[in-house]
């Protein structure tokens, strides 16, 4: 097993993903880690589907949004003494067989936070023009704010070591967490490493970021980031 006896938890935030969650969990369980699904107040059977597939399930009594759900996972990982927390989306776009790629920099002590990226090298991932433009804008902004070139800022496929788990358990953005968390981590002196991974298009359900909303999303994230950069920490 590639985790070298370290306690690894895979956090899967899920909101109404009953159709795709089971498969994702089964794929991740092949790698013998704890799978923790945060059921973010789903109105469908996400929670029971996840439990049936063999995951640990924390059911939030109300919908918090992706940031609040993910943070629950980090809080759990922090309290229960996990060494590494991995974030995987419930929609099946992240491939569990790519897990070792984002774990490796942490196991080698090269980085505190490893980011699975679609763009750093040529991969088979395709996206729309509007979405790509937004991603480039966000990448530029994050690069500017952190002083480190980061390509795929919105990737939800990432691995955090104990230091980052502790940081995220205490502070995490509720509204636009993927991008914001990178800036937060860098501000706290964490080392981020971006590694190239293969990703799929969503296999079921609907992305929370539809093409129509992507421009709006990008604008809001940029504003939120700029507001955050006014803060001292």
């Amino acid at each position: 097993m590639f985790t070298q006896d370290r306690k690894v938890v895979v956090i899967i935030p899920a909101y109404n993903e009953q159709d795709s969650i089971g498969l994702v969990i089964k794929q991740v369980l092949q790698y013998h880690c704890t799978v923790l699904v945060i059921d973010d107040g789903s109105s469908d059977q996400t929670g029971s589907a996840a439990a049936k597939a063999g995951a640990e399930v924390i059911s939030l009594p109300q919908n918090l949004g992706i940031g609040g759900a993910v943070q629950t996972g980090y809080l759990f990982a922090f309290r229960h003494g996990y060494d590494i927390a991995v974030q995987v989306d419930a929609d099946g776009q992240h491939k569990p067989r790519e897990l070792h790629k984002i774990l490796q920099p942490l196991l080698d002590g090269e980085a505190d936070l490893a980011l699975g990226s679609r763009y750093i090298a040529k991969t088979s991932f395709k996206s729309s023009f509007s979405r790509r433009t937004g991603m480039i804008l966000l990448s530029l902004l994050v690069t500017m704010l952190t002083g480190q070139r980061i390509y795929d800022t919105t990737s939800g496929f990432r691995a955090a070591n104990r230091k980052v788990i502790e940081l995220f358990a205490h502070e995490y953005s509720t509204d636009y967490p993927e991008v914001d968390a990178l800036v937060l981590a860098r501000k706290n002196g964490m080392r981020i490493k971006e590694v190239s991974v293969e990703m799929d298009q969503r296999c079921a359900g609907e992305s929370s970021i539809t093409p129509f909303r992507s421009a709006y999303y990008v604008t809001k994230v940029i504003l939120a980031l700029l507001v955050r950069s006014l803060r001292s920490v």
Binding site: I58, S59, P61, G68, Q71, T72, L75, T174
Partner: peptide
């Protein structure tokens, strides 16, 4: 308040688990 509600919701979720 909303920050506190988020934290409480997380705590309740973990406690229930």
């Amino acid at each position: 308040l909303s920050g506190r509600v988020v934290r409480l919701t997380q705590e309740v979720g973990i406690l229930k688990y």
